[in-house]
Design a protein around this nucleic acid. Structure first.
Ligand SMILES: [Mn+2]
Ligand SMILES: [Mn+2]
Ligand SMILES: [Zn+2]
Ligand SMILES: [Zn+2]
Lengths: 145, 145
DNA sequence: TATACTATTGCAACTTCTTGCAATAAGGAA
DNA sequence: TTCCTTATTGCAAGAAGTTGCAATAGTATA
């Protein structure tokens, strides 16, 4: 609730409107805190706003991610997941085998991003990266592959 | 054609079989050379093997990627894309705005991967990463955002 | 070459995601 | 408060991707 009050002026500043659907969607993302798939958002937000539809959820998540209110990520489930962009300055490292997930501090990527920015001319502002690898456990298990 | 002959023994070594469906799928990936979505693979491979079905394409691409014959990547289209793993030691950098795409040499990531492997215990063998950023053109256009 | 084992396929039904369009409603202006 | 503009929504239809299961067909073995 409070969270949507906070976002309302920011949305309006970009020509966007604060609808009850968006209140509900922002609310579940705020309450949950972590990554949510569109379907999860839909199921949860529908409890707050029963007339909510799937196309609205997909369009809203996409729009809010484009405007940097949300971060989108692929975490290997095949489906996109979203989270509030707020206090997030992290990246993800996920085991291809068992899905074990750890966070990577943004600091660990700063040097690489700097180098790539120099050599490519691209800017990496707001990047939210997911790496895939083999976790220590799965490395042992797979030795005799 | 030649390409599937090459893969047949490698598949068998892993308990997999070389079916006409797989011949067709490998063939289009080989001919095309670049990233293809499952739907693109389906449409192209169907010309070689008309009875091919979508579930077979999805399952085959997933299986072959798991076994490292293929590389899978998200390139921002929302859909997964696949390519032959063969001579590929690259990563991708894509403009969030205009989708302009450049390749990144694997060498550019080696130091970072080394550091992350040390600090996390994960191994990054066979990683195929996609970064998103803003290309030089789009940085200029968006200055007054 | 015939047999047996089981990986792979196609089918059907389902879930997830997308798109065009007309109706609705947010919120600035009067 | 009322009116107006147009961003946003819901609907309906469709595309993309998934799953369980019975039938098929690679391939190892004899
Ligand atoms: Mn995240
Ligand atoms: Mn690639
Ligand atoms: Zn693992
Ligand atoms: Zn660009």
């Amino acid at each position: 609730m409070t969270c949507s009050l906070k976002y309302a002026p920011q949305l309006r500043a970009q020509g966007l409107r604060m609808t009850p659907q968006r209140v509900a969607i922002l609310h579940v993302l705020h309450q949950t805190g972590g990554h949510l798939s569109p379907t999860q958002v839909y199921e949860l937000a529908r409890k707050e706003h029963p007339s909510l539809t799937e196309p609205t959820v997909y369009r809203t998540l996409e729009e809010l991610a484009e405007r940097k209110f949300l971060l989108a990520a692929h975490v290997g489930s095949g489906r996109m997941v979203y989270e509030l962009a707020e206090n997030h300055n992290h990246h993800h490292l996920i085991c291809r085998e068992c899905r074990a997930e750890i966070q990577i501090e943004h600091a660990a990527l700063e040097k690489l991003f700097g180098e790539l920015e120099t050599s490519s001319g691209y800017r990496f502002i707001d990047s939210h990266v997911t790496f895939f690898g083999l976790c220590p456990k799965c490395q042992k298990i797979n030795k005799g592959d």
